[in-house]
């Protein structure tokens, strides 16, 4: 536990709305160990991003309620530190990259200016030294004409190039944790692979932990050591990637993997999950997946807790599993 870079315990987040509060996150526990690459996977609306944003305290102030939960980042309880302290940690100890590299950089400032600003803010490097550091970060991202790129504006560069720059920037101060929110979703597939490899390589090289958010099971499978599967604001399964996605225990995870196109046989319709994600203004009191689950039993109207089913933090929240284990 003590070597955890990020620990989220019992997190609940609600967004007030006209129709009532949206219970976006209801009771999530996530832990990222030192040097670990941890994935959060789930479909849109499962609150993966909200969970990730809360790890940097990036959710807009006043726009949400957090009735319970404790977030510990590098041993610091985020509820107790000031905004100034949080700003010092952001960019230095913990960095984040986002889904849309197209818009994530200031459109009217040159790349160099934006990178150097962050470097000068968090390190002792100033002026020429900061510029040299920016150049080396870009070269690490396999950007050959780094010098020239520093002098360019974001709109002059491709999406893949911009995402590599953003990853380079995120590693500017060798953070202990990088939160990557769907970093390759907006990129085309060939660029995706390249960017992921660079990210993976850089993380392993610097020993940074990564919290990797994605809806793409294949990418998570390839990239992550451990994975949390989220559904409707809850973690429903977790474990080593090979276990959790290789032999999924929760009916939802099983259905997700079933639905991958590569599992389909030629000539058969693609498999999908019937029904829709539950309304989170009135979240189900029982298992969130109960209404769509083909294997639901009577007990599923109560909420199942996330319980260990094997070694290596292998956990699942499903009454079926509990019945089997008894």
């Amino acid at each position: 536990m003590s070597d955890a870079v990020l620990q989220i315990e019992g997190l609940e987040i609600q967004f007030p709305g006209f129709a009532g509060a949206v219970h976006a996150v209801s009771g999530v526990d996530i832990e990222v160990g030192a040097g670990e690459i941890v994935g959060i996977v789930g479909e849109s609306g499962s609150a993966k991003s909200v969970t990730a944003m809360s790890a940097l305290r990036l959710l807009p102030k006043g726009a949400f309620d957090m009735p319970s939960g404790k977030i510990t980042l590098l041993g610091k309880d985020l509820a107790t530190i000031t905004e100034t302290e949080m700003n010092e940690m952001r960019g230095r100890d913990v960095a984040m990259i986002f889904q849309e590299p197209q818009t994530a950089l200031n459109p009217t400032k040159k790349i160099g200016k934006q990178m150097i600003k962050v470097i000068e803010l968090h390190t002792e490097l100033k002026g020429k030294a900061a510029k040299d550091h920016a150049l080396s970060l870009l070269r690490d991202m396999r950007i050959n004409d780094a010098e020239e790129i520093l002098d360019r504006y974001p709109f002059e560069l491709s999406g893949g190039m911009r995402q590599r720059i953003l990853i380079g920037m995120a590693f500017a101060c060798s953070p202990r944790l990088l939160v990557a929110d769907e970093p390759t979703t907006a990129l085309d597939v060939t660029v995706q692979r390249q960017v992921l490899q660079l990210l993976h390589h850089k993380a392993r090289q610097t020993g940074a932990s990564v919290l990797f958010i994605s809806h793409d099971l294949a990418v998570v499978n390839q990239f992550c050591d451990r994975v949390y599967v989220m559904y409707a604001g809850r973690v429903i399964e977790s474990g080593k990637t090979a276990d959790a996605l290789g032999s999924p225990a929760h009916p939802y995870t099983q259905a997700l993997i079933e639905a991958l196109p590569e599992h389909a046989k030629k000539g058969e319709a693609l498999s999908s999950i019937d029904g829709t994600v539950p309304n989170l203004v009135k979240p189900p009191t029982g298992c969130a997946f109960e209404a769509r689950c083909t294997k639901s039993i009577e007990k599923c109207i109560q909420r199942p807790a996330l319980k260990p089913i094997a070694a290596d933090k292998r956990q699942v929240a499903c009454w079926l599993k509990e019945a089997q284990n008894v």
């Binding site: 940097l56 990036l58 905004e83 100034t84 949080m86 700003n87 010092e88 940690m89 952001r90 960019g91 230095r92 960095a95 984040m96 986002f98 849309e100 818009t103 994530a104 950089l105 200031n106 459109p107 600003k117 962050v118 803010l121 968090h122 953003l166 920037m169």
Partner: peptide, 15 residues
């Protein structure tokens, strides 16, 4: 509301 503001916040630049 723009994304680059979010990036700046994530990089620890003060409000």
């Amino acid at each position: 509301q723009q994304d680059y503001v979010r990036t700046a916040r994530a990089n620890g630049i003060s409000s």
